[in-house]
Amino acid sequence: MSEYKISVVKDFSKRPYGRYPDDGDGCGQYFRANLLAPKLREYDKVHVDLDGYNRYGRSFLDEAFGGLIREEGFTWEDLQRKLTYSHSLVKSIENLIKDRIDAAGGKGK
């Protein structure tokens, strides 16, 4: 089984911010389209390490993670099987990612 680990601050941007390219090079759309989605297609499992930055915005997380379903053709089930993520200090970031994936996949409350 092939596995890949992405460190957002080391592999993408020290200050990830915003949803779309108008928000800057560290936006969620670029993270999803240029790094996360390609790795999810290439590997059986991908882990996203969010440590090193504590101010992830909802717009970045929604576009990066929820956008996998809305824009990239992944299903909720695909992501449950293939994607893991963690932030060792701010667990609410993990909860927000779960919420954005669930909402995009029709699994919301």
Rank of each mutant, 00 (worst) to 15 (best):
Y43R: 13
I101Q: 13
D44L: 06
F12K: 04
G67F: 02
S88F: 03
Q80W: 00
K10W: 00
R41T: 12
D44I: 03
R41E: 14
G18N: 02
G18E: 01
I93M: 13
D99H: 07
K82S: 02
G28N: 05
S86T: 11
P38D: 13
S7F: 00
E63P: 05
C27L: 08
L35S: 08
L96P: 00
C27Q: 08
G24I: 10
G18V: 03
Y56G: 09
D22E: 15
T84W: 01
L96S: 09
V48D: 07
K45R: 15
S86H: 12
G105P: 12
R19K: 15
A104D: 11
Y20C: 13
L35D: 09
K107V: 06
E71H: 09
N34V: 03
D11Y: 00
G18H: 06
I69C: 12
N34C: 14
I69H: 10
Q80H: 04
A104H: 05
S88L: 11
K107F: 04
A64K: 03
Q29A: 09
R19Q: 13
G108Y: 07
I93F: 09
G24Q: 11
L96D: 11
Y20T: 15
Y17K: 14
V46K: 05
H87R: 10
D78A: 07
G24W: 08
R70G: 08
L89G: 04
R15S: 01
G52C: 11
A103S: 14
G52F: 01
K109T: 14
F74S: 10
G73D: 13
K39Y: 06
F31D: 02
N34A: 13
K107Q: 15
A33P: 01
K91N: 08
S86I: 03
R81I: 00
Q80P: 04
F31Y: 08
K14I: 05
D78M: 06
A104E: 10
W76F: 09
Y85H: 12
R100E: 14
L68N: 08
F12R: 02
D22Q: 15
E42R: 14
A103W: 07
C27V: 06
K5V: 13
S2P: 07
D78S: 04
R32P: 02
G67N: 06
E71G: 01
D49R: 02
F31L: 03
D78Y: 00
D78W: 00
G73M: 14
L36F: 06
K109W: 08
N95H: 02
G24Y: 09
R15V: 05
L50Q: 02
C27S: 09
T84Y: 01
F12Q: 02
R19A: 14
E71I: 04
K109I: 13
R19T: 04
S13G: 03
E3M: 11
E71N: 11
T84C: 07
V8E: 04
L61A: 02
K107E: 15
G57T: 12
P21K: 15
F65K: 06
D99W: 01
H47N: 10
D11R: 00
L36H: 09
N54G: 01
D22I: 15
N34L: 13
Y30Q: 09
K5L: 12
A33M: 13
G105V: 05
D25I: 08
A103D: 15
V8A: 03
C27F: 05
H47F: 01
D49I: 00
L83W: 01
G66Y: 02
E77S: 06
R15Q: 02
